[in-house]
């Protein structure tokens, strides 16, 4: 009798999800991240340095806002990272809920503090821009308020994933909050269209030509690309550290269990 029947049908082709899962293997992730990290970090530092120096010293002043418009070169990249970071957090949370993969849980937990920091930078630099332009550090404007809500969503996620004794419950609760919070992203983006706001409208759009002067657009693109690569490098380094720490915890636990078993067996032999 054959124990294993061999099917005559060809093996099913790996799906797109299976392909994606290859990168969720912790060993493969560690190898890939080790190779990628120096390039991301170097590229991020270089592009951000070019963008910031260009924006601070060589780009023209705005015809209406004057020199204060130079704050744009740090404010807009921070806002972009805060929004796209939250999208990445929501993506990791969706992967965590659908596939229950530990790497997705760790990714969501590590993106949270970095995204929150960039949201805080966006709010702080926005406030520093608002004071000379509007005469106020803060106004309860739709754009500013929805951005503040995003910052609180990040903080809520950070607290929630660490609030349970069972980390899995924390990851699940954080994932649900992250997915609910996605609704804030279109509100932030379209707030300047839907409501009358003190905050200026979008100068750059995917569907139309930018309304910003080209010699101001280039340093902004460089700074945004640099901050994006820097964000990816920071998250990757934190995620790598988290995977290594988890591996370390498993190894220490296994060693402790082995030592306990050996001491029990030695005690059993001694009592015979």
């Amino acid at each position: 009798m054959e124990l294993h029947a061999v099917s005559s049908e060809p093996a099913p082709k790996p799906t797109r999800a299976a392909g994606f899962h290859r990168f969720a293997n912790p060993g493969r992730f560690l190898r890939l991240s080790e190779a990628l990290l120096p390039w991301l970090a170097a590229g991020g530092i270089l592009l951000a340095a070019v963008g910031l120096v260009w924006g601070a010293f060589f780009s023209p002043a705005d015809w209406q806002q004057g020199q204060a418009a130079r704050i744009m070169y740090v404010h807009v990249p921070a806002a972009w990272i805060a929004l796209s970071g939250y999208l990445a957090l929501a993506g990791a949370s969706a992967a965590s809920l659908v596939w229950r993969h530990p790497l997705a849980d760790l990714a969501a937990a590590e993106i949270g503090p970095v995204g929150a920091s960039f949201a805080a930078v966006c709010l702080a630099t926005g406030s520093l821009w608002g004071r000379p332009e509007w005469g106020a550090w803060w106004v309860w404007d739709a754009r500013l308020t929805s951005m503040l809500v995003l910052f609180f969503l990040y903080l809520g996620h950070i607290v929630l994933v660490r609030a349970f004794d069972d980390p899995i419950r924390g990851y699940r609760a954080g994932a649900v909050l992250a997915l609910i919070g996605v609704v804030d992203l279109p509100i932030i983006h379209f707030s300047v269209v839907w409501w009358n706001t003190l905050h200026q409208g979008n100068s750059i759009s995917l569907l139309s030509a930018p309304s910003i002067y080209i010699s101001m657009l280039w340093p902004l693109i460089f700074a945004t690309l640099g901050y994006s690569l820097g964000f990816a490098a920071i998250v990757l380094a934190r995620l790598r550290a988290a995977v290594l720490e988890r591996r370390l915890a498993f190894l220490l636990l296994a060693q402790a269990e082995q030592a306990e078993r050996q001491s029990f067996s030695a005690a059993g032999l001694a009592s015979l």
């Binding site: 910031l52 601070a56 020199q67 204060a68 130079r70 704050i71 740090v74 404010h75 990249p77 921070a78 930078v121 702080a124 630099t125 520093l128 821009w129 004071r131 000379p132």
Partner: peptide, 11 residues
């Protein structure tokens, strides 16, 4: 100027 310097320092 102080606002620009502070923004860049934070960022």
């Amino acid at each position: 100027l102080p606002f620009i310097v502070a923004s860049y320092a934070i960022a």
